[in-house]
């Protein structure tokens, strides 16, 4: 009986170790793929959907430089960029030097089988508390990520890949984030009362999720980027 219990423990331990090793190597492979990109300049269209924010679709340039610098610029006008948008680049999530990876199994995402990996940073001072990655093992790309931070709430990323899969760069990113209340004192704004104000205030209270969609049209990869771009 004792031998049998030891055998069970041995099998369980070794299989857990194997899974952990597999998931670590999977994350490592994804990291290596992303590491091919030292910098990029991308063009795209950004669509912002926040209940209290009415903005036009923006033509933007997205700049990235290793290790974790990211800048989104609207060349023609003004853009409101959500805090935490830096995580739209997976390099920035995986740039944490040491983390514990936990395998959470396989799930289907848009009919694609992906492995769920939970990353726990080992550094107590890290802003990221937990990242959940949905990794496409065939293409070695992250299709979905959910990041919980200490200061900026939880962000969610959904990514579609196309022309730049070999670099692990998506064609489309949907970035979902938590929003806080927006309220201006009426005495400051002196709004024209066209009968919709109350309805809009109620809508704002209902929906506290914001969404930003970026459709990338073109990447210029590893051509070198000046630091001045990020100022």
């Amino acid at each position: 009986m004792r031998k049998f219990i030891f055998l069970i423990i041995f099998i369980f331990q070794s299989s857990f170790y194997t899974f952990a090793q597999d998931v670590n190597s999977l994350v490592q492979k994804v990291k290596e793929k992303l590491a091919l990109v030292n910098d990029y300049e991308a063009s795209g269209r950004m669509k912002t959907n926040v209940v209290f924010l009415k903005v036009p679709i923006a033509t933007v340039k997205i700049y990235f430089k290793k290790p974790n610098r990211l800048k989104i610029k609207n060349e023609k006008g003004i853009s409101f960029i959500p805090k935490g948008a830096i995580t739209i680049n997976m390099n920035n999530i995986l740039s944490v030097s040491s983390f514990t990876a936990i395998d959470a199994g396989l799930v289907k995402l848009d009919n694609i089988s992906v492995r769920v990996v939970k990353l726990l940073p080992q550094d107590d001072t890290s802003d990221v508390v937990l990242s959940t990655l949905y990794i496409d093992e065939t293409n070695l790309v992250i299709r979905k990520a959910r990041t919980t931070t200490k200061d900026n709430g939880t962000f969610e990323l959904d990514m579609s890949y196309g022309k730049y899969t070999e670099y692990g760069l998506p064609d489309k990113v949907i970035f979902t984030f938590n929003t806080k209340d927006y309220k201006m004192p009426k005495g400051v704004t002196f709004d024209f009362d066209d009968g919709d104000a109350q309805k809009k205030a109620e809508e704002n209270m209902k929906n506290r999720k914001g969404k930003v969609e970026i459709d990338y049209t073109q990447y210029s990869i590893n051509k070198g980027l000046s630091d001045a771009v990020f100022k």
Partner: peptide, 17 residues
């Protein structure tokens, strides 16, 4: 000139320049 941002009591509007 640039885009105009109009702050209302319950929403923020951005108008292209």
């Amino acid at each position: 000139t640039n885009d105009l941002v109009v702050a209302k009591e319950a929403e923020l509007l951005q108008i292209e320049k």
